[in-house]
Write a protein that binds this DNA or RNA. Structure first.
Lengths: 208, 208
DNA sequence: TGCTTAATTTGACAGCAGCAAGATTGGATC
DNA sequence: GATCCAATCTTGCTGCTGTCAAATTAAGCA
């Protein structure tokens, strides 16, 4: 009985990782609506039912991809903040830049991470990864306005995040800067971040 | 030959509108991922192929639903701005409130309107409706800071929109205020809008 | 070696979008 | 009023999809 299957072994061994990888490129190519478990399997050169042994459902795979996305997002934020030096305000801007750069580089992944439509693929790990990114951001705001009250800190953290998230989201959805050069867009982003940081820092100065 | 079909006539007459209506409730119930042309047809008590005569594809129906959504969004913004009175800053806050209220009332529709994944259901009418809402917002910002340069006006329009859009988006995606009472959430929204309006107005006062 | 278990396969089911061909209706024309 | 046409809707297909069940293969361990 000649093994007609190519030289690929029956046991893939690293299928779980392979599926996450192929799933991620597929997501980036086709978007969530074009995302297919069977296509993931095809790209990993494996039968259509193989993924079932590594992921309970298609949502499970999506959750894993999103979870890792949050890890990368946090890393991108940290890296840019570090590059920005020691000034707290500059670090806040840097973190925002990292956030936007990640979203621009992986738009579909970014959408998946936040577009928690019906919560039907919420996972403890996913929730924890999202929370970690949030806390990274909150810490940066806290450092920028150490003397502010806890309530103001929370408020400004919301504010800064909403600004950055809203802007890049609208850009990705072609609502802002459609047809503009990436150079012009970058200038717009920086202006946005500057306005954000200024408002945050000012809130720390005003006694109430 | 007894007519086994119920008393419903062969020609539905208002099928296009019926599909838009059933599609919209379906969307709100199941989200974009659970949205199905056949289920729309079923709810309109019509065969699965009937929609094809009114919409080229499922994306066509979604585009029409999204287009009407933008009309309603603009109406909600205008109504709240009117309620806010004549002060330009208050009107800006009111518009933001209307925006958020619409999104909170129709979260899935709101997501559909903006989640323009692969642009595969972009339509001239949809683009125009989105643009109308944008211009409504820009006009409000312009009125609030009439003496500012054109560039600052654009910048602040982006800024204000990003703030409001980002905040409500994060709330809908359970990233902000998860598990909070709607009362507390409303307070957070108002604080957010106040910070936004203050920044906009200040940008109009500073000479550059 | 043989046995157990994990990993993968094939095959099936129901549901989906879109297409084609037939059935029914409403309205215009004669 | 009768006839024809175009619009509307239905049934039935094709090739997808996710998920399940059963069969097959490989790996690890005694």
């Amino acid at each position: 009985m000649a093994v007609t299957r190519k030289q690929t072994p029956y046991h893939h061994r690293g299928l779980r990782e392979a599926l996450i990888a192929s799933g991620r490129t597929l997501l980036e190519e086709k978007g969530l609506r074009g995302f297919t478990l069977r296509e993931c399997a095809r790209r990993a050169e494996v039968s259509h039912a193989a993924p079932a042994h590594h992921f309970d459902s298609i949502n499970d795979l999506l959750a894993e991809i999103a979870t890792r996305g949050f890890g990368e997002l946090a890393a991108a934020m940290s890296a840019e903040a570090r590059r920005a030096g020691t000034d707290a305000s500059a670090r806040l801007v840097g973190q925002g830049l990292g956030y936007m750069a990640f979203a621009a580089a992986h738009p579909m992944l970014f959408r998946l991470m936040f577009n928690r439509e019906t919560d039907d693929f919420e996972t403890p790990a996913l929730a924890a990864a999202a929370k970690a990114a949030r806390e990274l951001h909150f810490a940066a705001v806290e450092t920028a306005i150490p003397q502010a009250t806890a309530e103001v800190k929370v408020r400004m953290s919301d504010f800064a995040w909403a600004t950055v998230h809203g802007f890049i989201t609208l850009v990705l959805d072609s609502q802002i800067g459609a047809g503009e050069s990436s150079r012009a867009l970058k200038a717009r982003s920086l202006a946005m971040l500057a306005a954000m940081a200024e408002t945050v820092v000012r809130s720390g100065r005003v006694p109430d």
